[in-house]
Each structure stands twice: as structure tokens, then as C-alpha cells.
Design a protein around this nucleic acid. Sequence first.
DNA 1: GACAAATGATACTATTAATGTATCATAATG
DNA 2: CATTATGATACATTAATAGTATCATTTGTC
Lengths: 132, 132
Amino acid sequence: MKLITRNTDYSIRALIHIARNKDRIVSTTELVKELGVPRPFLRKILQLLSINGILKSYKGKNGGFKLAKDPEQIYLLTLMETFQGKFKLTECLFKKKICPNQISCKLRAQLDSLEELVENKIKEITLAQLSI
Amino acid sequence: MKLITRNTDYSIRALIHIARNKDRIVSTTELVKELGVPRPFLRKILQLLSINGILKSYKGKNGGFKLAKDPEQIYLLTLMETFQGKFKLTECLFKKKICPNQISCKLRAQLDSLEELVENKIKEITLAQLSI
DNA sequence: GACAAATGATACTATTAATGTATCATAATG
DNA sequence: CATTATGATACATTAATAGTATCATTTGTC
């Protein structure tokens, strides 16, 4: 199963590097060298981070990215939801009209409480903790 | 994300029905009617449950399946691992030779502790609880 | 102002995992 | 011995993930 997909993972690694060099602009070229991930894919990821206000971008020569917030304010949950959509451990089949009974479903109840537990844990994790 | 995939989910629903009728043999035909899931897919699932000693099968006319164990002894974690492989919240990219540093990875450490938490919770859930 | 080096926007392709099908063999019951 | 069930196994489809490609726009430097 994938709690964290590759684009989220790459984004974290990129952000860690940017956080560790937060006084200057970091370019995609530099990040590709540092992380060894595919350039076009990384570019797409950085763009999304920029659109979502996590990175600030600088166009043109010597351009690149800087953090738009303090590392303490960048949450793992936010990153996951940026790339993977709203946090859900398991989509209920009820919604896909396969499982008939949402309300009485004991499994659903168990999963919901588990989901809450996991979400609360993830909420606490920030870039600051990951980049030290 | 999918903590529980469709075959695990179908298996649970099938087992619930079988558990509720545990004094008699239940056929695939009956389960298809009851659950409304694709027959060939369900057959494959029931076969796997049988191979793994969760169901006992009866071949031939009037054949079908019965529980091979008490509902109290059938764990959600076992079902998940039967259909989805060893429980892992997120496969480490280190193993795929993409991420260079397994040991120093702070994210990995966080995920590992989260994984333990979730696994322990899932370990406690049995068919008995789900089929009441 | 022209060029180079960067990001912005966006459409497309490939790969993998999940989901579902099909077929033939074998066994048990009446 | 026909019918109805499971056993074994190969195949096909769909959806999600992962990755590519292309052209436009912006900015610094000569």
C-alpha cells in the first residue's frame, strides 16, 4: 500500500534540500543533481508546490525556488494532500455503489477510527523535523 | 490510498456471511447473490482463503465453503496479508535504489513508528467483531 | 536588444497495480 | 453418468501512478 506516493516523497526530499539552503535560491538543475530524480517529473512537482504556496518561485536566469513558509509551518499532511488528494485510508465501496450498507458496516467504523489516529499523527510532522 | 483493496474487502464480506451461517455449507452461487460481486473474482478469492486455511472447501454437488477456524481466530491482518502481501504502509524507495539513505532518513523513522501503530491496531480486529 | 537559463502551462505517454474473465480439470452427489 | 460444485491457472481490462515533451514567458547578462 502507499501511504506516500512518489511525487510526495520527491517533494519532501526537494523541500529538505531547499530548507537546508534557505538563504538562497535553489534551481531545478541543482535539485536534479542532488536527488537524482527525473527532471521533468521534478519540475511538475515543484510547480505544484509553488502554486500551492509552499514554494516561492523566481523566474529567469539564476531563478529557482525558495521556501514560502518556515519549515515549522510546512506539514507532511499538506504535502500528501497536495499530491494525493484528501487523506483517506480506504475509500468506502459504498460510495462506488458496490457495498450496500455504509451505516451498519463494522469494518467502516474500525477504519474510520484508525484513519483519525493516523491523520492526527501525520498532522504533527513538519518539514522542520524532517530536515534537521 | 488503499489500506484495504477490493479483494480483501470482498473476502471480509464473504466471511461475514459464512460466519453468520456457520453450521452449513455456503456456495459461491449463494455468496454472489448475497454480496452482488463478480462471480469469477469471488471464486478466486474463496480459493485463496481455502488454500490459506481460513475456509474449508467442499467439492461436488451441494459443495461450497465453511469456516476452517472460529471467527475469533480470523484476523483482519491475516486477510490483508493474504491478498495484499506483507503489511507495509509505504515501501521504502531505498529498496528500489532511488533513495540513497535508508539509515539517516527521518521520514522513514516516522513512517516506521506509524506503521507499528497501525499494524498493532489491525492485529486486534477479528472476524468475530465484524460479523456480529 | 539578443541570448541563455530559468520557470509556467499543459498535453501526452508509459508502466504498474488492481480488478476482473475465461477455460478446462477434478470431485461429489443423486 | 449427468449435474453442480470447487481447483488450477492463464488471460484481459481498467485505473492509478509515474514519467515525458513542448512551447510560452520571464529575467539577468553581455
